[in-house]
Design a binder for these strands. Structure first.
Lengths: 222, 222
DNA sequence: GTCTATAAGCTGATAGAC
DNA sequence: GTCTATCAGCTTATAGAC
């Protein structure tokens, strides 16, 4: 069940209009939706082909097997996630930085929920394909971000708190709106997420977490 | 894919020592673990039988098919979840009530993570078996709890906030430690959750959320 | 109640025509 | 590059002996 992340993400870039790349991207996207809903074992190659509007054999032409398709999807998602909260430094303002980070995370949850769902599925299942990624990428990333937060605390810019648990809280609260979309919508009675609701949720999450670690939320523009 | 929740939970009670009930409970428990890790489609009846230490045909003797076994597991989980934050009223102290609720939720996440994982799987997959439950049980429960929180706000016991989004935040943050157990352990570098860590996490989550909605966290006993 | 053997159907993967 | 036809293996579920 263990596996390395294939370095195929670049091939999936949008923008390239060659037919090969177009079908490649289409299949990748269809696979993401299918894997997100059913997990690796539960996903069906036929269902992926149907979502992509292609015969099943065509899927196997682009991807050797179910395993490598899953790895390509994971790689594609993780590459698109590495950009956030990266360029923050101790010199920055903690309230503004955290507010920006939280709002970005909320927005991703609404714009590409299946990516978050797929990741959640993988982690819930014990990260059979991502245990290496958690150790090699995720853990160092958290450690570095936590050091910056600790830097803010040491500089007197914010009160004492646990930086790692704070990051967990931001992840949990923001991803909740992607992963538990059905439950949230069922309770909020909203047929679909609209812009106003996204802002209302982002405002709540950001201001509550910031106040929670003793920071004054930045003045809202809206 | 739609289905009613079977009323079989009572038969799964612990304590009864009759062989029938013993095997019934064992299978139910084994099924919970398997469904939690692989989801409905991905779960294998053979794997459930193996986890229970019984031949596969025996599983089918107790449960008609995979579908009814899944429903029995769901029913069992949901019944055990209905007890928390139920007896709270407007007369209670908000900080103390929320603190108790959050600590209970954190504790459940650590004590029975597979229950939370199974539920998460079901919701991620669009709640094919639980859409009725979300509407008929979950939504009214949230509405009633939200009214109590609103009552606290109206009584001046706590500042203005969104009660429903507050409940979502508590759910998200606490369940994160069950559903994302592997990721959390990988980053915290803890081989297993120990009592000290559970308390540290419960302290953080409770105090951060309470401060986040403008409440003074109750004095810790530890 | 328990368990072996097997039926009936589904799924991933490929061969080979176009 | 695309697609139909098909194979080999796996999975749910049951029949029937004990």
């Amino acid at each position: 069940m263990q596996g390395e992340i294939a370095t195929v993400g670049a091939q999936a870039e949008q923008g390239s209009q060659r037919p090969r790349d177009k079908h490649y991207s289409t299949i990748l996207r269809a696979a993401q939706e299918e894997f997100a809903v059913h997990g690796f074992k539960g996903a069906r190659m036929q269902a992926i082909a149907d979502r992509a509007g292609l015969p099943k054999a065509n899927v196997h032409y682009y991807f050797k097997n179910k395993n490598s398709l899953y790895l390509a999807v994971l790689d594609n998602i993780l590459n698109s996630w590495n950009d956030f909260f990266n360029d923050v430094s101790v010199k920055d303002d903690p309230a503004l930085s955290l507010d920006t980070f939280i709002r970005q995370k909320v927005r991703i949850s609404f714009e590409d929920p299946s990516a978050s769902k797929l990741f959640a599925n993988e982690i819930i299942q014990g990260a059979p394909y991502l245990s290496g990624y958690l150790q090699d990428v995720m853990k160092p990333w958290v450690t570095e971000r936590a050091e910056i937060i600790q830097g803010w605390i040491d500089a007197g810019k914010m009160p004492e708190t646990d930086p790692v648990l704070l990051i967990f809280m931001i992840w949990a609260t923001t991803q909740h709106y992607a992963d538990f979309q059905v439950q949230v919508q069922s309770i909020l009675e909203t047929p679909d997420y609209d812009e106003e609701q996204i802002n209302r949720i982002a405002d709540f999450v950001s201001s509550t977490i910031l106040k929670g670690c003793g920071l004054q939320p930045p003045v809202s523009i809206s």
